[in-house]
Design a binder for these strands. Structure first.
Lengths: 230, 230
DNA sequence: TTCCTTATACTCCCAATGGGAGTAATTTGT
DNA sequence: ACAAATTACTCCCATTGGGAGTATAAGGAA
């Protein structure tokens, strides 16, 4: 039974403290879920894998008539986790359904497109409110892991950065689309960002004689994914 | 056989022009793949579903001794797609393995964390080069769909926005971590963004008497996902 | 005190998906 | 003339998603 990224995420939680499976599922949804979403049923399976490889230990507790299992990391598990921290991970991968609707928006009406963008913005506002609540909690004296605040600040900063990017894009797109008279006039396009990107020459590119744009027509936009193991 | 978001993505491509399955798989990877990544084998199955529901038609062509299937949209398919454009879609969902490594970085060494951030930055630079090539291609006279430029400008702007957000975060995080002497001193944390978020009062929140931060401790960070159908 | 709701603590299962392996003809480059 | 890359798919298994189901415990309202 091979370990997946999800296994290591659970193992990571166990390096912080011991948890019941229920708590692990909760934590996975609450904190890690925004950048590593996984089904609850799978999270219940993971700690068993860890135990079978001696990376964690299960302790059976009884709370009244009902039993619960508490998992804790073993020294071997801690070492395995440290090794994993050194390995390169998969690049970010995004699923963003609204962008498909945007990409084919000329099939629908301007109001449909604006409604799609409006919904994206509404999602952003919801996330921002949540972010504000979490920030207040993290800075309060009720925060559970004050010794981890500097680390948590790193990941929560990403959440903010991401939310801002979505908001910035959605609002720019809305303003852009509002200027359109029809859905199929490409001459009104705001292509300033494309021009800026086209002009930019970034380091690391090893020329092959041809204009780099000649290669794109047929080139795969592959992201050299290290694949497998999620 | 119910239609998934992937089905509609394929259907969307068919509203632009007819394609062979191979070309559809290519396009899905190249253009839509950055915000809706799906396995090639599944993309080969999708057009068959569309045909079975009369949303598309298959035409068999022979190129020498080898046959190929060309798919085109039907009027019913076009209508179905327009209806889909009006429906709300799933909110953005991200998988970002490096963030798990960051979130548990105090288990490893400072160099491990910096290496993780460096790899994220390297990925960003790769994407930026690709973005530049694509921009040059889109503005060139070899671009395949000039009549769609204004639409494509919207989605490619998102790519830029996202890449920038990752870059901005990775560099901020690197600078932040470089200041750390040990991995377990939370007092060095840069929490300015948390403070700013905590102070922010956003519209739409309906107070319930309590301080909003009191609700977070146990609250689920749910994103009200409309689930199902990808 | 009783009842109702919510939280805790899981298991089971099927449909959907990922992703690689495999086959073969055709085109392009050396 | 030959090799490599591209076109054009099919097949299949392991993994995952996600909902349904079961049951006890704790907290709050009537």
């Amino acid at each position: 039974m091979r370990l997946t990224t999800t296994s290591y995420a659970i193992l990571g939680l166990l390096t912080v403290k011991e948890w019941t499976t229920y708590e692990l599922a909760q934590q996975m949804e609450k904190s890690i879920g925004t950048y590593w979403p996984r089904a609850k049923s799978k999270i219940y399976e993971e700690p068993k894998k860890l135990v079978s490889q001696n990376l964690a230990r299960a302790r059976r507790e009884k709370a009244g008539a009902r039993a619960r299992t508490v998992y804790s990391v073993t020294p071997k598990g801690r070492r395995a986790f440290q090794t994993w921290l050194q390995e390169p991970g998969a690049p970010p991968q995004l699923e963003f359904e609204a962008l498909i609707k945007v990409f084919f928006a000329e099939q629908g009406m301007k109001e449909d497109l604006l409604a799609t963008l409006e919904r994206v913005d509404a999602w952003v506002q919801m996330r921002r409110r949540l972010g504000a609540e979490i920030a207040r909690y993290l800075l309060s004296d009720r925060a559970e892991f004050p010794q981890r605040l500097h680390i948590i600040a790193l990941t929560s900063r990403w959440q903010l950065e991401f939310t801002r990017a979505v908001e910035h894009w959605a609002r720019w797109a809305r303003d852009e689309v509002e200027r359109w008279k029809t859905m199929d006039d490409p001459s009104v396009a705001d292509t300033r960002h494309l021009e800026a990107q086209a002009k930019a020459v970034l380091g690391g590119e090893h020329g092959d004689g041809r204009e780099s744009s000649e290669r794109v027509g047929k080139a795969s936009l592959d992201q050299h994914n290290p694949k497998k193991g999620s």
